[in-house]
Amino acid sequence: MEHQFLELYDDYYPKLYAYILMRVRHKEQAEDIVQQTFLKALENVASFKPRQGATFGSWVFQIAKNELIDRSRQKTRLVFCDTEILDAVPGTSSTIEELLQKECDAEQKEKWLKVLSSLDRLDDDEREVITLKYLSDLPYKEIAKTMNKKPNTLAVILKRALEKVRKDLHV
C-alpha cells in the first residue's frame, strides 16, 4: 500500500499542483492545499473504492476541490490577516506571475501571462476543462468524473474553450 500510494503521489502531485496553482494563483496557498489534499487522501485511502469509473485521480481532485471550497469560505473571514502576514515576510509569498518570472525568460513570461489572461476570460467550466486537460494533463474520463459531466457536454465545452483561446491568442 505504501509503495502504491507514493507512486500515485509522484504521478498526481504535479498535476494537482498545476490545477490548484491555477485556481488560487498563489504559490504558498497552492502548496498548502496540495499538502492538505494528499494528507486527507492518505487518511481516507482505505475507504477509497473505485466504483462507477472513479479513479484515484478523480477522487484526489474531488478532495482538492472540496478543500478549495473550504478555503474560500475561510478566506472571506481571514483574507485580511492572511494577506498581511504573507506580504510582511519577504520571500514567503509569491503569485503565479512572480513564479513565472522566476522560472522563465522575459519573452516566455509575456507569452504565459497572455495565456493566463486568456484563461481568465473563459467561463468557469471552460477554464476548468482547459486546466484539467492541458495544464494538469488528466485523461478525459477523469475530467468527466471530476467535473461530473457527460462526455458529449465535455467535448462541447472543450471545443468552445479552445476556440476562445485561439481567438484570444491570435494563433
Binding site: P14, K15, Y17, A18, L21, M22, L99, L100, E103, C104, Q108, W112, V115, Y134, L135, S136, D137
Partner: peptide, 8 residues
C-alpha cells in the same frame, strides 16, 4: 504552459 506549471 501546463508543462511549465507542472515542473515549477
Amino acid at each position: 504552459f501546463g508543462k511549465v506549471l507542472r515542473s515549477i
